[in-house]
Design a protein around this nucleic acid. Structure first.
Lengths: 208, 208
DNA sequence: TAGATTGTTAATCGATTAACAATC
DNA sequence: TAGATTGTTAATCGATTAACAATC
């Protein structure tokens, strides 16, 4: 079963709800959420139904409750420490990424041959790769960000997998060899740029 | 018509073909490509058919020719200069991103209040945002990478749109207000991490 | 020729949308 | 109550897969 689209939408709903909470709005409707993100109200209700989220007939949804339900379904209702492998430009950008500090996604440590302390808030320590094993023994982390050069991506993956990490986000451009029980989300930045190019080709101007 | 999936797959085919070229392989088959990326051979042929790419019955595909066809269909068969707006950690990471140098996607200049010259190969100049307009008059760029803080993302977008840029990749976390004839590819890094979390929730271990 | 492989047409599957019944 | 909104069932749409004819 492929839930990718559902999960993406759920996450979008969550973002809207977080904005509503900030604005102090207490109640919302499928129709209003639809206005914000352009997803049909009927699909929003369908998604909620699929994930067992219930509203009040005639009364819409309580913003705080709905947000909480969305977080539960996304698995965001708990502490979610990540480790960051590779502390180059991309690693630094991710560690300081603004959005993360608002949610419960936290990068608690980075590993790179060049050690040091990242001046982020809160500061994130940078350890040598050799200490990953020891670190994971003390810290029960299940998720890792792979932001290393292509030539070491597979061996780093293998090591992390052996240490019990099962959820990965991979920024390298090689296709990792992944066991059945691990999940790897490949983010291919070149592909993202190519998508832009495709959709702005003159020949596609009308169709898109 | 939504071609997003097709474009994603076309780009994957292109990557495989580029690897084959590097290995000096001259001929390939739908079935061999399938082995590399796990997409059914029948779908590969269907995609090729949709984009008018023909092979040789019984003889498979000539690697170089196929790669060229894929590039043409992806719009990658020409010079594709991007400008980079925002030269923080993420901007730096993108400018130095390894994959780009192999393809025809090139970042030719960056704009940031903190000017300077990026020590990349080739070096990318960093200009103040005020000079965007003048730069675009001399350089017919149609694509931009938006890697700026959320609070200036919309105003930067508006300025770039006014200057004729129509293809964008947006790393900020706000939903931009976009005219009909522009294309914005939103890359939400928080969403990418959340996807990993969702698929590694204990309750999803069996289903996924 | 026989066998392998392409390319297309038809069937299936899943996701989205529409219709509408339930109910506050 | 009447009207608004939810939640579900049914219809539509599009994308994927399977079957197979074409042919080198």
């Amino acid at each position: 079963m492929n839930y990718k689209n559902h999960v993406t939408r759920l996450s979008q709903y969550k973002s809207v709800l977080q904005r509503l909470v900030k604005s102090g709005i207490e109640k919302t409707y499928a129709e209003s959420i639809s206005k914000h993100i352009g997803i049909p109200a009927t699909q929003i209700r369908k998604d909620f139904s699929l994930f067992g989220i219930r509203g009040n007939k005639r009364g819409g949804y309580n913003v705080l409750e709905l947000l909480e339900e969305l977080k539960i379904n996304l698995g965001l209702n708990r502490d979610l420490p990540f480790i960051l492998i590779g502390y180059g430009n991309l690693g630094k950008a991710l560690a300081r990424y603004h959005g993360f500090h608002e949610g419960c996604v936290r990068i608690i440590a980075a590993f790179d041959p060049k050690v040091g302390v990242l001046s982020s808030i809160p500061p994130i320590p940078v350890y040598p790769p050799a200490s990953i094993s020891a670190f994971l023994k003390d810290n029960p982390v299940k998720h890792a960000v792979l932001a290393v050069p292509d030539d070491v991506a597979q061996s780093m993956f293998d090591e992390l997998y052996a240490e019990g990490i099962r959820g990965f986000i991979n920024f390298s451009t090689i296709a990792l060899n992944v066991p059945e029980d691990a999940y790897v989300n490949n983010v291919d930045l070149e592909l993202e740029l190519e998508t832009v190019i495709y959709y702005t080709k003159e020949s596609n101007n009308k169709t898109k």
